[in-house]
Design a protein around this nucleic acid. Sequence first.
DNA 1: GAATGATTTGACCAACTGGTCAAAGTCACG
DNA 2: CGTGACTTTGACCAGTTGGTCAAATCATTC
Lengths: 204, 204
Amino acid sequence: MPTDPAPTRIQKKNRAAILEAALNVFSAQGFRGATVDQIAAEAGLSKPNLLYYFPSKEAMHNALLEALLDTWLDPLRALDEDGDPLEEILAYIRRKLQMSRDFPRESRLFANEIVQGAPRIHAALSQDLKALVDDKVTLLRGWMAAGRIAPVHPYHLIFSIWALTQHYADFDTQVRAVLGEEDPFDGAEAFIDTLYRRLLHPPG
Amino acid sequence: MPTDPAPTRIQKKNRAAILEAALNVFSAQGFRGATVDQIAAEAGLSKPNLLYYFPSKEAMHNALLEALLDTWLDPLRALDEDGDPLEEILAYIRRKLQMSRDFPRESRLFANEIVQGAPRIHAALSQDLKALVDDKVTLLRGWMAAGRIAPVHPYHLIFSIWALTQHYADFDTQVRAVLGEEDPFDGAEAFIDTLYRRLLHPPG
DNA sequence: GAATGATTTGACCAACTGGTCAAAGTCACG
DNA sequence: CGTGACTTTGACCAGTTGGTCAAATCATTC
């Protein structure tokens, strides 16, 4: 079976420009709301030119989702069995919040997809994502059983971390409308840190 | 200035059917993803008939958002100065979680709108919503100053409640993909209750 | 039951959208 | 250079979409 030929300099540059533009447009408008023309304008290329590099609008979307899903789960993957449990979890939360701050477009891309029922990534959720979460839940249960963190529902613990951290990227508009000038992330980090310290502080 | 004529029986029935159908479609597909034909099919009416009752697709969307924004804030409005602080907040959280369980379509309608930058309700967010939150923040600060709940950033306290409770409606697909059979809301209620009891338990 | 206004719809339209294609332009390499 | 592969694009197309309109049907009231 033949391997794909190495991409040329131009291919590399244009594929990257298209994905960057597509991320802007898809994250702001959702899949259906985005148009190929918009992405082309944003990338500084013509519409037929985009379709020379990607066979369809959906292919652009898929390329983004696939590339990002992996990165998105890195913070959870890095949760380390051998570290101090509470500090490990707090470090995970900080990584996750940092991703909301640094990659809000990526967060919103997923949010758009999942709010609308995840039609394109349902398989990845109930396979890769579930497997990873199940694995980390086992780890959390071990820590709880050993009395090293307070016992709570481990799945909801993870959901709550996702909810709290991603809220600041996905609902940024609302947060800023209410907060005014204040930087949301400064206060959020301290608040969330306190929240989980009090929740998980080992009993006794 | 002339008042609108009273709606006929047929008007009442059809307007309600259209809004119900529109809520289904908009919440599942977003504004741009929804089509008037879809809404018409869902409502069991013809497309021109919909446009007899509402001047445009956008008018249907606005009608939904306006009617819902008010309802959506009721749980927060009901936060009572004269009750026991911790129990008031926990009751607010239960009301909010109940709305995620009972009205997930409404939650997703807002989520779609806000994730995409709230183009149609930005004014309401930075006026009505902000005013209400500011008011309740004053109340929370009073409770904290009096030592009746632990002092935390009051805005982020409210954001965290929104994030945690709405997560179960907006990201339902993801939650269920990870949890499998288990009912998300059963575990969520107990978990969130514990979370805020430990966070807000009065110091000393 | 006739008149009047409310309701419904089939046929239609212009704008938009994703995608195609042949021809033209550009690049890399011998 | 020249040549073959890679890249770009203007023109185009078919399907979809929000919305219009005149004509038809229905409900209500006298």
